[in-house]
Design a binder for these strands. Structure first.
Lengths: 178, 178
DNA sequence: AGGAGCATGTAAGCGGTTACATGATTTA
DNA sequence: TAAATCATGTAACCGCTTACATGCTCCT
């Protein structure tokens, strides 16, 4: 699922500007992924050329002009097609796993520091997700909420697994010192 | 951690050709990530220019000639630096989550099919990891094995969470039919 | 007067994939 | 003799980020 399908997905719900799309995405998905203007605006132009969305220029006196994009029937069809494309296998290309893989080249102290630091990072993300819960409960549909809960569990599991790694490192260090 | 650091990491252990590097990576990391020749060979040339690795041409009669790369002292230093760079926050950019987020646009049958299909995919990956266990136990160091176990737990957790999503979908469908 | 927020965009570059191209040797 | 494995590489392209550039309005 590329960026274009995601933009179409949001436009299924409502017509918006590129700016709005970025906001909508950030609110719903800040914990999973980011989207920058540098990819949004070119994507919108391309999709307009392909007839997946249509543009309406709104001239305003109380602010900068806006380009409001609306999904077309062709766009809706393209979006549904994209939803139905078989999923690729998930590859958790985690930078952390890469580090762990080469831990033998670091000192015990450095290893500990990396894992503990990463762990606190993950826990912080999880806390932030919990803070955002009421807002998500308010605006998300049931599937989007399912998505949110899935994410929460993901980070909980990650926390638990990282704690286990910390334990393993502790034990090994003790044995080394014997 | 980019591709170059990973290649350096493998070269820390032993001198190898580009072909060998791809194999080494595939064996250790097939479940997490892939690496193609289209990125390996240019990366090796670049790193040679930068003095991070050195090349030795081996002319053979019993097969194609090989370019064997060896990490230099500068390369070792660069690798350790890369290991110590603070980790970015993990973003589980899962294509599955994106689908789930827009599930409202699909029929209950299609939703079920996607999740169940994905679930079987994940379970299959997990099975393959378990099959590979003896080989990994044989060749991996303790941190690499920690890595393997971490991955296993990741897929177990994913399986569990997906099963929960299936349950949620089932319940909602039942309620809808009332 | 200055900063935050609204709004749109471009250019350069990074990191990577896919498909293509070549050619040798070993195994079935 | 065909297929698999060994071995190296290029060209075109994709998707995305970062940094830059512009300019307006509202609030303090």
């Amino acid at each position: 699922m590329d960026i274009r399908s995601i933009l179409l997905g949001f436009l299924m719900h409502d017509s918006m500007t590129g700016y709005d799309l970025k906001k909508a995405f950030s609110i719903s998905f800040s914990f999973f992924s980011g989207l920058s203007y540098g990819s949004i605006y070119p994507a919108l132009r391309k999709m307009e050329k392909q007839g997946l969305i249509s543009k309406r220029l709104e001239i305003r006196s109380d602010g900068p002009n806006r380009k409001i994009y609306t999904i077309t029937d062709a766009g809706k069809a393209a979006f549904l097609d994209a939803l139905r494309v078989p999923l690729p296998r998930d590859q958790p290309k985690s930078p952390f796993l890469m580090r762990l893989f080469f831990f033998t080249h670091l000192s015990p102290e450095e290893r500990q520091a990396i894992v503990v630091n990463y762990l606190s990072f993950v826990e912080e993300t999880r806390r932030q997700m919990e803070i955002a819960r009421p807002e998500i409960e308010a605006r998300a549909d049931r599937f989007q909420f399912l998505c949110y809960e899935f994410g929460l569990r993901f980070f909980s599991d990650l926390t638990r697994n990282l704690a286990q790694v910390v334990d393993s490192l502790d034990e090994e260090e003790k044995e080394e010192r014997k």
